[in-house]
């Protein structure tokens, strides 16, 4: 497993996301209220660019006509056929056990620690003053 430094943490503000290419893989990094998550950009259905999809809330219902809205921005709807995926787990809503997009462990590391290595930071120089998003591949 290699650890990849993919972006300065400040570049992905809460509620935003960034698409990165790491070791030939397209991966979406999401910041949900300060927590970072990384998902494969490939939808398990027909391969749509999942991480370009809309971030929406989760709507559930106990009874027709009632809409229980929760977790705004934490579900990802595929830009193609609209299947919903949970950004926290990569699981689809429709078939969570069998249908999921790969999710990768993410940490935020201080530049100081990163300077000691071993990390892949191919894309930009690391400064010891800043924090960085690191994913394990």
């Amino acid at each position: 497993m290699t650890r990849h430094v993919v972006a300065p943490a400040s570049e992905i503000a809460p509620g935003s996301r960034k698409l990165v290419d790491v070791a030939g893989r397209s991966i979406g990094i999401f910041n949900l209220g300060g927590e970072f998550f990384a998902l494969s950009n490939r939808c398990p259905h027909q391969g749509g660019s999942l991480c370009l999809g809309e971030q929406v809330g989760l709507v559930l219902s106990e009874e027709p006509g009632q809409y229980r809205y929760s977790r705004p921005g934490e579900m990802l709807r595929c830009p193609w056929h609209g299947w919903e995926f949970d950004i926290r787990t990569g699981q689809s809503w429709c078939d969570p056990k069998r249908m999921r997009t790969k999710s990768y462990p993410v940490t935020v590391e201080p530049g100081e620690a990163l300077a000691k290595g071993p990390y892949q930071a191919d894309i930009f120089p690391v400064s010891i003053e800043a924090d960085y998003v690191v994913i394990d591949l």
Partner: peptide, 15 residues
């Protein structure tokens, strides 16, 4: 259809 459009009819909570 349900996989794509479920949020419109969230009470359809199974396939």
């Amino acid at each position: 259809e349900w996989r794509a459009l479920r949020p419109e009819v969230p009470w359809v909570d199974r396939s």
